[in-house]
Amino acid sequence: MSDPIKNDKLIKQYDLELGKVFFYENYLIIEVAEGVCFDYQKAKTLSLLTNLHFGDRSFGYISHRINSYSLEATDYMKIKDVFPNIKAFAAVTYNESQKTSIRIENMFYQEGIVSFENIKDAIKWVIEKLKNDSNT
């Protein structure tokens, strides 16, 4: 398969207090800023942008964890309220601590977060998952 990052056109990039968000046609990549506590309120802020870019279309969410930050795992129980059209949730992790965090987050997010060791594999999986969901 060809390189998804090179083939997918970046539609819009936002540099926000909570981090950088990159919007592509059917998915976003978020790089939460160093030291931020990503919680329900920050997710609501991000949802304004997802609504703007995706409307009521299905989309994929990729958390590219290049920085160290905290999050409120229990807020994952409300994620479908904030992002009702999310169909694929991937996280790119780079160490054991981040992998452990994903296991804990999955205890609260029933749909499941799939962990990857690089951004390319995460993008490929999200694109494939969105394609498969649209075929069903």
Rank of each mutant, 00 (worst) to 15 (best):
L52K: 13
K42I: 13
T74M: 14
A33N: 05
G55F: 08
N106D: 10
N106G: 11
T93G: 00
Q110I: 14
L10E: 13
D81F: 05
A43E: 03
I66M: 10
N85M: 15
K6E: 04
K6V: 04
S63K: 04
K131Q: 13
N118W: 03
E105W: 00
I11E: 14
E34L: 06
P84G: 04
K99C: 01
G19M: 01
V82C: 11
Y27N: 04
M107K: 12
N132P: 02
N51V: 04
M107A: 06
A73T: 10
D3N: 15
A33G: 11
R57G: 08
L46A: 10
L48P: 01
D39I: 14
T100Q: 10
K87N: 09
I102L: 02
F83R: 06
V21K: 02
D121S: 06
I29W: 02
D75V: 12
I11W: 00
N118Y: 06
Y24R: 02
M77G: 11
D75P: 12
G35A: 14
F54W: 06
R103A: 13
Q41P: 00
K42L: 14
F38G: 09
F83K: 02
K129G: 01
A33R: 09
Y14M: 04
E105G: 03
A88M: 08
Q41C: 05
A122G: 12
A33T: 07
R103Q: 13
D8W: 02
D56G: 08
Y14N: 03
D15Y: 05
E25M: 07
N106P: 00
L52Q: 14
F83C: 08
E31R: 15
Q110G: 07
K129L: 12
A122N: 08
M77V: 13
Y61K: 11
K12A: 03
A73Q: 07
I29Y: 05
I11V: 15
I102N: 03
F108P: 01
G112R: 04
N95H: 11
V21C: 10
D75E: 09
I62K: 03
N135K: 15
D81L: 11
G60Q: 06
R57Y: 08
W125H: 12
V32W: 00
E117F: 07
T136Y: 05
T100A: 11
Q41T: 15
I123Q: 04
V21Q: 02
S97C: 12
L71E: 13
Y61H: 15
K44G: 07
K9Q: 09
D56P: 00
D81Y: 10
E17M: 04
K6F: 05
F83T: 02
Y69R: 10
A88G: 02
F108W: 08
S58T: 12
I5F: 15
K78R: 15
K44F: 03
E25G: 13
L18I: 15
N67D: 13
Q13H: 08
N132Y: 02
S101K: 11
K124N: 10
K80C: 06
K80F: 10
I86T: 06
K78A: 11
D121E: 07
F108Q: 10
K9C: 15
R65P: 01
